[in-house]
Nucleic acid binder design. Structure first.
Lengths: 338, 338
DNA sequence: TTTCAATGTACACTCGTATGTACTATTTAT
DNA sequence: ATAAATAGTACATACGAGTGTACATTGAAA
């Protein structure tokens, strides 16, 4: 308790500067004629008192809340944290701070979000229902969605950002084929949740399309999915390698999956890259520290983050959303070098 | 543009339920006698309209803003993102959302933060000045600081949380000594910023104390710091190994540093763990995927996150801050197994 | 001199919510 | 029967800021 520093308000500034509150407001927002002398006095008072307009009051009065919400499903991913980190950098310069939360799949969550008056929202979660995106956009909030699924319905007043999952996957698969692989398998994530879903994101689509456009068949034998644990995944990869299907290329949904698969392969005597090539996705730090070093696909995180903030900023300013697509960079390391 | 969904306000609910706004308020906050019948009608109306009190207005009127700010210096660290992710889980259940930002070392940043009326703040940044912590606390905001430096001044109304850096480091060093190491070196981070600072965090303190309490000398030859790049770091480690100092143990400030050092060692023919033992810090994913697998120190991230939220919650409720210390778990993998 | 534009100021209302206070109607105690 | 306690309601104000509108002053143009 004790005298927990009373807030400095507009009134305090006005009193110190010897002007009316209105003048202070005009100076702060710089949107009316104000006498030079008074302006200076106000500015001085602001500095002396270290005044800053209360964000809540501003937001309430219809101004911005200066907050952007980032909704993800696995905040822990290095990929997400990089994006958020970069977004923070750019956003701060435009006066925004970033809020962050894991996707909660409930209506309460949505009204939570709406009641908080975010100026803009970034959705980077495969499990965030379109329905909710619509509600947010319908409430007048600019929304940028990172594309995850293939057939993502176009929603009014929502910008769709292609972060490179699809093209990156195609490039990765093409890279394996270029290296001579004839039997490439796709290794999907570990499903911790009860239900086993077939791979449905754009990486998988890219895999399928690139395989087929090179006249390779894609069938159940070329997809590893639904594993419930790291061990199960490793065992399944080994099974594929041991059978007569002659698997000679592995595309992992992300670097960690690729690493697990790679380790599984070497454990039963397969050499990487001589017997089997492996490529991951994300260019996360493990891809640089595992052994052999993992080839991978790098998304343009900085550019994505920058563009996202820029786009939101424009939409907040009233401009129409526009979709953007980013390409990726293939990083060749030892796991595919022949 | 167009009819961007008008906000649902208390007035709408009141009209639909056929009661006064005041009644709606009482029902929402559940703090006054309200007729059963009217209460039900209000609740029904709330449900129908999907009403939720506007957060800004509430915060302005002196209620909570339901927001907690997390200030870090390197959001990208897996350690931070894990903590934030867990905090998000616990905090959400208490009605909070987490904001996240990188430490900006300016007075403007502080007034930014204050003007946003956060209910609580977590500081996990070695470079965040005590002065600022004081200002925040002085403004009446509960603050929890994750201890990073050794002699951290006690600040009124601020809780200090020991996340295990010190004890974890001591345990790691003791582990190396137990494994027979007689010449252990500490490898500090890569300093990207211009100025090269000597290691000053609690991990280093733990290293020094544990060494000395085992009668080992700590001198310049046992500290690698100030390297400007990964290559420089690797080269410096190799130099230490090649000289006659018989380095047989490496304690890396974090897993990535330890990995770089370990790789540097194996490149010049040192075997890990036979010739030199290596241990890292953080139990990040690379420690599990590098080769050989890295022994490391695991902090109790979940418990830390949970306790942080709990503590903030109590402080927000008016209780006195209390300091808490967490211990760590040593995870022995192949890089120290003999 | 009159007229009008430009410049500069301040009142009063508003955003959506919380709540002290006062008031009425009803019940209980005396 | 009267007093006092309780249940239930509503008014009015406050939180801190933004801004429409009206008003005052000045200078220049007519």
């Amino acid at each position: 308790m004790s005298d927990a520093g009373k807030r400095v308000t507009r009134a305090d500034v006005a009193k110190l500067a010897g002007v009316s509150e209105t003048i202070v407001s005009y100076v702060i927002n710089n949107n009316r004629y104000v006498d030079k002398d008074k302006r200076l006095r106000v500015e001085e008072a602001v500095r002396m008192l270290n005044y800053r307009p209360n964000n809540m009051a501003r937001a309430l009065k219809g101004k911005r809340s200066n907050q952007i919400l980032f909704i993800a499903d696995h905040i822990t991913n290095e990929y997400f944290s990089s994006i958020v980190s970069e977004m923070d950098r750019y956003a701060y310069d435009s006066g925004y701070l970033i809020s962050l939360c894991a996707n909660r799949n409930t209506p309460e969550f949505i009204s939570q979000v709406i009641s908080r008056q975010y100026d803009g929202i970034v959705v980077s979660s495969a499990s965030f229902p379109d329905k909710y995106v619509e509600q947010l956009a319908g409430a007048g909030i600019p929304v940028v969605v990172f594309r995850r699924r293939r057939h993502q319905r176009k929603i009014e007043r929502v910008a769709l950002l292609g972060t490179g999952l699809y093209t990156g996957a195609r490039n990765a698969v093409r890279h394996l084929i270029d290296r001579g692989c004839r039997n490439v398998i796709y290794v999907d994530r570990i499903s911790v949740k009860g239900h086993i879903s077939p791979p449905d994101d754009l990486r998988f689509s890219g895999f399928v399309d690139e395989m087929e456009s090179n006249d390779f068949q894609v069938g159940p034998e070329s997809i590893v999915c639904g594993c419930r644990s790291q061990e199960e995944l490793a065992e399944e990869v080994r099974r594929r390698l041991r059978t007569g299907s002659k698997v000679d290329g592995i595309f992992g949904r992300n670097d960690m999956i690729a690493c697990i698969a790679m380790t599984a392969a070497t454990q039963i005597g397969f050499r990487v890259p001589e017997d089997v090539c492996v490529i991951g996705f994300d260019d996360s730090s493990i891809s640089r520290f595992c052994s052999p070093k993992l080839s991978t696909v790098s998304m343009k995180k900085e550019e994505i983050a920058c563009a996202t903030v820029e786009l939101l900023n424009q939409m907040i300013g009233g401009k129409q959303p526009k979709d953007i697509d980013f390409d990726t960079t293939l990083i060749e390391r030892d796991s595919t070098r022949r």
